[in-house]
Amino acid sequence: MGVALVLVGGNPQPVRAAGAEFTVTPVLNAAQRAGVTDYFDLDVTPGHPQTLTMILHNEAKTPETFTIGANPAYTSDSGAVAYDRADPTGFTGEYSMHKLVTGPTEVTLAAGESRQLTYHLTPPASTFGGIISGALYVRRELDADNTGSGVTLQNRYAFALPIRLHSGTNLGTAPSLRLLAATGESLSATIENPSPHQFGEISLTLTLVARATGKTVWTQTWSQLAVAPTSRFTLTPAPPVLKAGQYQLTMSAKSGEYTWQGNRQFTLSAAAAAQQAAANQPVANSPWGSLTFFAIAVLVALAAGAGGWAWHWRRQRGH
């Protein structure tokens, strides 16, 4: 679910995920950075605990149970910042939000009830650069919905209330992107943000060149990507079927005033190329379809002939 808070008069307002029938409101404390009112954006002192408070309101006409987790920010393979996993494989940071924040993980609210929930934040013991990014991820599970087709679906609604921690220094770091790895069996590019910065508005282009000829065989551009701090993600585009050989994949990316370049080489074996070609081969029409049609036509013709012969035989007997 996307995160969006409607601000009125500079104060945080209740926010709901579409169709979810619940709202989440942050209660800001003295550590909140000036000018930010729609999520927790905190200046923290290393090793000094503080509390985070939010108000959860059940708008449904029935009691509802909510699960809540303090999750790290990570980058999904679609190139977006996500918060829905406690231990995502693409997160490479030293400090994970689910180890820094503790508090209620499940709460049941009566119809129309609001409750203030308090969480305990313990920042890292030493100064850190950039930010530590995560969220309080709130999920409501509805009753099973029988579709009438024998399939039972479980409806879920979720909302992420972001948390960003600063320790007062960037330690000279800058946003960064690098092409970490490339493979050709099913073309993929693993891209990493090794920096402790979360940023977006990224335009990224991948270009594939056949090393034997120096010719570009494929290129694709993505726009409006975003990355979480210290995380990696894998793009898996769908280029044309490649021949066996040696290739170089080049990345060119830009966000604001920052630009990044990178390249990786790989070899596509004859066996892998043949497998790709077979997987992309259009499905041929089955010969059985034509044979079936032919057989039906023959049977119809025979039936028509037999019917005509029977009519002629009965007519002859009548005479």
Rank of each mutant, 00 (worst) to 15 (best):
M1Q: 14
V6I: 15
V6Q: 15
V8D: 10
N11T: 10
P12G: 02
P12T: 02
A18R: 14
E21A: 10
T25R: 04
P26N: 01
N29F: 08
A31F: 07
Q32E: 04
Q32F: 04
V36C: 06
F40R: 03
L42R: 07
P46R: 07
G47I: 03
H48C: 10
P49V: 11
Q50F: 12
Q50G: 12
L52N: 11
T53M: 02
M54A: 00
E59M: 09
P63Q: 11
F66S: 07
I68S: 03
G69C: 07
N71V: 12
D77T: 04
P88W: 08
G90T: 06
F91S: 13
G93W: 05
G93I: 10
E94A: 13
E94D: 15
Y95I: 09
Y95F: 15
L100S: 07
T102K: 09
T105V: 11
A110S: 14
R115C: 11
P124M: 13
G130F: 03
L136N: 06
V138Y: 01
E141P: 02
E141K: 12
N146F: 13
N146V: 15
N146Y: 12
T147E: 15
S149I: 11
V151Q: 11
F159S: 02
I163F: 01
R164G: 03
H166M: 13
H166Y: 15
H166V: 15
H166T: 13
S167L: 04
T169R: 00
T173V: 15
S176W: 06
S176N: 12
L177P: 09
L180Y: 11
G184I: 04
E185H: 10
L187F: 01
S188N: 06
A189C: 01
T190F: 00
T190K: 10
T190H: 03
N193D: 09
N193C: 10
S195T: 14
F199M: 00
E201R: 03
I202C: 06
T207Q: 06
R211L: 15
A212E: 13
T213F: 01
K215P: 01
W218F: 03
W218I: 01
T221H: 02
T221Q: 07
W222C: 00
W222V: 02
V227N: 06
A228R: 04
P229Q: 08
L235F: 00
L235D: 00
L242Y: 02
A244S: 14
A244Y: 13
G245Y: 07
G245L: 13
Q246V: 15
Y247V: 00
L249D: 00
M251F: 03
S252W: 00
S252A: 09
A253D: 14
G256M: 06
Y258N: 13
T259M: 08
T259A: 14
G262P: 10
R264Q: 06
F266N: 07
A272M: 01
Q275N: 14
Q276M: 05
A278N: 09
A279Y: 01
A279S: 04
A284N: 10
A284W: 09
N285D: 03
G289C: 05
G289N: 12
S290P: 01
F293S: 13
F294H: 02
A295C: 09
I296K: 03
V300R: 02
A304L: 14
A304W: 14
G305M: 12
G307V: 08
G307Q: 11
W309D: 01
A310D: 07
W311G: 01
W311F: 09
H312V: 08
W313F: 06
Q316K: 05
R317Q: 02
G318E: 12
G318Q: 14
G318V: 14
H319R: 15
